[in-house]
Nucleic acid binder design. Structure first.
Ligand SMILES: [Mn+2]
Ligand SMILES: [Mn+2]
Ligand SMILES: [Zn+2]
Ligand SMILES: [Zn+2]
Lengths: 154, 154
DNA sequence: TTAGTAGTGATAATCATTATCAATAAGGAG
DNA sequence: CTCCTTATTGATAATGATTATCACTACTAA
C-alpha cells in the first residue's frame, strides 16, 4: 500500500543527492505527504499533513522544500486562481501520472484528466518541435488548463 | 493608429453596459492602456501607465477594474511565476489575438505565439468536446503555457 | 431636482510568501 | 565511531501583492 510513497521517496533521494542536496527527515515527510495524496495541496495544507507525524517541522521548511522540488523538477506548482500556490508530484506516485486540468471557475474544483492525452501528446510534441525551432526556445514542460463550469456549477 | 484602442474601448463599453456596469473614465483609461500595449502588465504597471494621462486614478481602481474585466471575459489573468498577476486583453486589440505562451524559466521573458494555432485549435476543440461530455464540464477557456529556456538563456 | 446606487481614492488590513539568524543535524574524512 | 564542516531547520520578523473599508463623488432613472 505504501509502495508509492517509498518509490517516490527513494527516487527523490537519489535525485536530491545528485543535485548536491541532503535528504532530511523533513524533506522525506513532505515527499511522503505529496506522494500519498491525490489532491493539489497548498504549502499550508502540506504543513498540516506533515504535522501529524512530524510535529516539529515548520511551515518555512515546507515552503523551502517545495520550492526546491519545483526547481529539481519533481513537483509542479500551479495557480488555480485561489491566491495560493498549489503543489503536485510530477511523477513517481501511485496516484499521479502526467496529466492536465479542468478548473471550475465557480467552485474552484480541479479535475485531473488523462483521457485524450494520446492525441494531445502527439500534437504537443509536434507543436513543441515547431516552437523550439522557430523561437529557438528549449521547452522543458507545459501547463494546460481548461477553465469552465463543473457539473455541479453550470 | 489609435483604431485598436477605440475599437476595444467601444466594444467593451457595450459589454460593460450589458453586464449592468458603468463605463467610467478610469475604466476607459485602463482599457486604453491594455489595448495599447503588447506586454503582459501587472496591476502596478497598468497604474503607472494610467497615471501619465490620468494622475488622479488610484491603484485600487486598477485592481478592481482589472478583476471586473476578467469576470466579464475581456481580460485574461496570468501567473508567469514572478509573484504577481499579469493581465492581457483577450480580444479587440490591434496587438493581440488569442494566443499561447512560451515562458522562460530563467529570465521570465514571455513570448506570445500564434503559430501552429490552426492544428492546436483543431485538437483543442476535439479535446474540449470529449472532456465536456466525459466530465460534464462546460469549458469556457483554456490556458496553454510552455516552460523552458529562451534563446538567450540556454 | 432628487433619491438611490455604483464607482472612486486614500489608506488600513490581510495574508501568502521570504528573509533572517542562531541552533541543529547530515554525511564525509579520518 | 567521532569530529568537523556546512547545509538545513524552526521560530519569527519582514515583505509585498492584493483586499477591505469608508467617506465622498458621479451616474442614472423617475
Ligand atoms: Mn493534477
Ligand atoms: Mn500574451
Ligand atoms: Zn464547480
Ligand atoms: Zn530567458
Amino acid at each position: 500500500m505504501r509502495r508509492g510513497c517509498e518509490e517516490a521517496s527513494d527516487g527523490c533521494h537519489g535525485k536530491f543527492r545528485g543535485f548536491g542536496y541532503r535528504m532530511t527527515l523533513a524533506r522525506q515527510s513532505i515527499l511522503d505527504v505529496l506522494s500519498r495524496t491525490s489532491k493539489h495541496l497548498s504549502a499550508e495544507e502540506i504543513y498540516h499533513e506533515v504535522y501529524k507525524t512530524h510535529p516539529t517541522s515548520g511551515l518555512a521548511t515546507v515552503y523551502r522544500t517545495v520550492e526546491l522540488l519545483v526547481q529539481i523538477g519533481l513537483v509542479n506548482k500551479f495557480d488555480f486562481g485561489d491566491n495560493r500556490a498549489r503543489y503536485e508530484l510530477e511523477i513517481g506516485s501511485e496516484h499521479k501520472a502526467h496529466h492536465h486540468h479542468l478548473v471550475c471557475m465557480n467552485c474552484r474544483r480541479v479535475i485531473d484528466y488523462t483521457d485524450f492525452i494520446e492525441e494531445e501528446v502527439e500534437l504537443l510534441s509536434k507543436t513543441e518541435k515547431g516552437l523550439s525551432k522557430k523561437y529557438n526556445f528549449q521547452i522543458k514542460k507545459h501547463i494546460i488548463q481548461f477553465y469552465g463550469l463543473c457539473d455541479k456549477c453550470q
